[in-house]
């Protein structure tokens, strides 16, 4: 009787695993085949670009603040000057 119950429980668990396993394998496959190479590609591009950025040894943090200030100023200007969207239909 106990063995029968155990077998029933195990078969129920196996049915669930059978249903979710393809989804897990597919998502892992997509990550490995598509997302990971994209990540490596982007990492290589970024690695080449950031070598030109002023690092902590230069102490030029104000350069980043100026860039941030330009974007903030541009955002405030556009939000105040053009609050509505021009629909091009």
């Amino acid at each position: 009787m106990i063995l029968q119950n155990l077998q029933d429980t195990l078969s129920k668990i196996l049915v669930v695993i059978e249903k979710i396993l393809p989804a897990i394998l597919w998502s892992m496959g997509i990550i490995l085949a598509f997302v990971l190479p994209l990540g490596l590609f982007l990492k290589d591009i970024l690695g080449a670009l950031v070598s030109h950025f002023p690092g902590p040894e230069t102490g030029l943090i104000w350069v980043y603040f100026i860039v941030a200030g330009i974007f903030l100023g541009l955002g405030i200007f556009l939000a105040v000057k053009f609050p509505e969207r021009k629909i091009q239909l």
Partner: peptide
């Protein structure tokens, strides 16, 4: 250093994006 430098640029850009019309 990198946290503050890139975080401030990211924050100002998120302002510009969020304040734009849909």
């Amino acid at each position: 250093f990198w946290l503050i430098a890139m975080g401030s640029i990211s924050a100002s850009l998120s302002f510009s994006k969020a304040s734009s019309p849909k």
